[in-house]
Design a protein around this nucleic acid. Structure first.
Lengths: 192, 192
DNA sequence: TCGTTTTCCTAACCCAGGTCAACGTTTTCG
DNA sequence: CGAAAACGTTGACCTGGGTTAGGAAAACGA
């Protein structure tokens, strides 16, 4: 069943049939309805999630407002690596924006897998590196670009997001209010 | 000589005399004058740096302006982990804000060390995790707080920065102009 | 030591984005 | 299907921070 995941993993490491089987064994399928939360603020994140179909976003709740951190579509990975690592409660909530199918890898299962099949240590490291590169990209995105530039970059680099995600979530991802995003879009339509 | 580094490392892993010697052997001392650059935009970051004394900051140059990302005082580590990992040129520059003494760990030396003394793999992982937690903290700092809140948090959590770093660098770290930081400070003095 | 930077502050004015409120459209779901 | 909720847009007005232009004091370097 988790062939998609395994194919994805096979892109950065070689795995034989036994290893594939061992990995498959710990993939726990899970489905979420639209708007359902997979993790909420205060929980400890004890898993990594692979999105088979659908879409997730994570967000912070700050004084009543939601600040969206990232969107995840099919064939991408999500985990709150900080909470996963340290066992501390997360400040993020993770929500499905569409009906979503996932595989969950529980931390305990993963650690057992590392012991029985050390090849997968590499998997762990790659996940960590991706998590790092992800937040770093996000930081540079926020510090180095204006709201309008952020919108244009998103439009250029991830048009799928604009197509599939309601605009007010995109606004919160860009760090502006829905009204402002609406104005930015109008400005860009007129000015070219 | 690099006893400070070794003591620091000993806090998260146990190392015997042989390992200490092997590690010491790859520590390359380096001094920087005030304002000198250790790495500039476009370079590949092939080292991790341990600050013995003094202070570093890294920054992005964006349309003539500098956006400071972080400050590093004595006994802390800096590396552009993304460039270090991928071999891609960095977008950051790293500069000494005071006369600064460093130990540099070159990537090739580190990799050799991992082979001869696998214990140090743990060192690598811990560095990676810290790098991750560092940028993640930075992202939350930027997304979830206003300029004034960011200043107050800095004042509360890292008063040393306020004491030792010129105010215009702090402004650029907070994501505002020096004039704005000056106003924020005035506001806080008056209002309590 | 003395001139040159560097650093910090102030004030007047400007603008991107926030706030509030209203309104039309689309989606959702009983 | 029809009511209710969610969504996107617009307008009027406000505000935090940017911009520009000073000027004084502290730190630096020849």
């Amino acid at each position: 069943m988790p062939d998609v995941v395994l194919d994805q993993i096979a892109q950065f490491m070689t795995i034989n049939a036994t290893e594939r089987a061992a990995f498959s064994a710990i993939c726990r399928p899970r489905t979420l309805r639209k708007k359902e939360l997979l993790l909420r603020e205060g929980d400890v994140c004890r898993f990594a999630a692979f999105v088979r179909t659908g879409c997730l976003r994570y967000f912070y709740s700050v004084e009543g407002a939601e600040h969206t951190g990232q969107f995840f579509f099919e064939n991408s990975w999500y985990t709150d690596y900080a909470s996963f690592l340290t066992g501390e409660p997360t400040r993020q909530s993770i929500q499905a924006l569409e009906p979503t199918e996932l595989f969950l890898l529980h931390r305990d299962d993963l650690e057992a897998l590392y012991r029985t099949h050390p090849t997968f240590e590499r998997f762990g490291r790659v996940m960590a590196e991706r998590a790092f590169l992800g937040v770093r990209h996000r930081t540079e995105f926020l510090t180095n670009l204006s709201a309008e530039e952020r919108y244009r970059q998103l439009l250029r680099e991830r048009p799928k997001v604009l197509e599939r995600v309601p605009q007010h979530y995109i606004a919160s991802y860009l760090g502006v209010k829905p009204e402002s995003l609406s104005r930015i879009r109008k400005r860009l339509l007129g000015g070219g």
